[in-house]
Write a protein that binds this DNA or RNA. Sequence first.
RNA 1: CGGGAGAUGUCAGAGUGGUCGAAUGUGCCGGAUUUGAAAUCCGGUGAGGGUUAUACCUCCGGGAGUUCGAAUCUCCCUCUCCCGGCCA
Length: 416
Amino acid sequence: MIDLKYLQKNFDEASAKFIKKGVDAETLENLQELFSTLKEKNATLEEAKAEQNKMSKLFGEYMREKKDVTELKAQVDAKKEAIVGLQEVAREAQEALEKVALAMPNLPDDAVPEGKDEDDNVELRKVLEPRTFDFEPKEHWALAEMNGWIEFDRGVKLAKSRFAVLRGQAARMERALINFFLDVNREKGFEEVYVPFINNATMLQGTGQLPKFEDDLFKIEGEDLYLIPTAEVPLTNLYNDEILTQKELPILLTGYTPCFRKEAGSAGRDTRGMIRQHQFDKVEMVAIATPEQSEAIFKMMVENASDILTRLELPHRVVELCGGDLGFSAASTIDLEVWLPGQNKYREISSISNTREFQARRAKIRYKDGKKNVLVNTLNGSALAVGRTLVAIMENYQNEDGTITIPEVLKPYMGM
RNA sequence: CGGGAGAUGUCAGAGUGGUCGAAUGUGCCGGAUUUGAAAUCCGGUGAGGGUUAUACCUCCGGGAGUUCGAAUCUCCCUCUCCCGGCCA
């Protein structure tokens, strides 16, 4: 959630920033209006309540002194009636504000490049040269079929489209990758955590998936529960509504979870292969930090994800997202894109974001700085998306006969 | 799923209609004592909103109700613990 007090006090500055992220000025004005209305209605209501409280106290005194209370009672009754109306007005103002405020994206950092979509993202650097092939490299779905690694049709049979089955070596490599990622993250100081794959609506609101993106989530029927779309949700919300001590920050967490996404709105995109599935594995990094710590941790997280790709000898590039391509909760994001020779392009394999206080404000995650409670900064990033890594290995490590060489670093993880 | 008990501040735990945002202990912070530490003593210490700052409002699991007044009474829900069933 954005800081409404900041918006109220620095309206022009905030508008300029929001425009970078594609929010129009009208929405902002509306929001500011709703906020000041709420404050006004609340003030009126509270004043009335104060009067009622005062009279009730007096009532107690009258009783003790055995004075007549009929007149006082009439007064309180009248006040009570008035309060009911005022309460309704205040509640409506509250709801109107929340509806708009919870749907507002985060403000982008000042350093975020201008731009409206992924074409305006800025490539920061390339890591490792793509290999040159003396044959036509195949796409992963062709390799999957040749090796019997992935069964798309049976995945569809078991569930529906965009589900797949991994078999034999592919299934083992999936598991090897998870272990490899967790081990590297642990080396870098992240604590390994195992969490529920189903979270309640409050948690989903805390990290920003709800209320705006309900259509992207798998909901459990008849329950207030959702399959998680990313481990960012449970890992960050581990500290939902908590006040941490400054000593324990930063908290660095890593965890493996499957992720479930409806992929609403991406009909027709990446329908072939394993790039975009309803269920996929991911190892996630999450950091809870003070505002002073968050920048350095952000860089460290990017380096770590890049390092994992390097250890797998997978060529990739580091891309800074422009304002228009930033996700809902992010103040700044760096994507890692891995080279896919079969598709002849770079594809996203990791996305690392600093949400600053945006999620912390929604999820009420604070720390004690002296006497004051201060919102933390929360950061998250993949290290890495497992299915897409498997795809990248297949395409980059393919041989002319369609076989796939196992990357050196994975051999111990696959009992080789 | 069936039976019983419970939900209060960091935690433990009192409070059963007004002077209770809440005793006491504990934890934490500051200070005294000490060469330093432990022990001891003194002081401070829940959250959210609101205000320049006070006032003031809200919160004792959540919601609805009774009452001039609710942590305290009534109803519903959720969760936790114990016993039993089922079960990886």
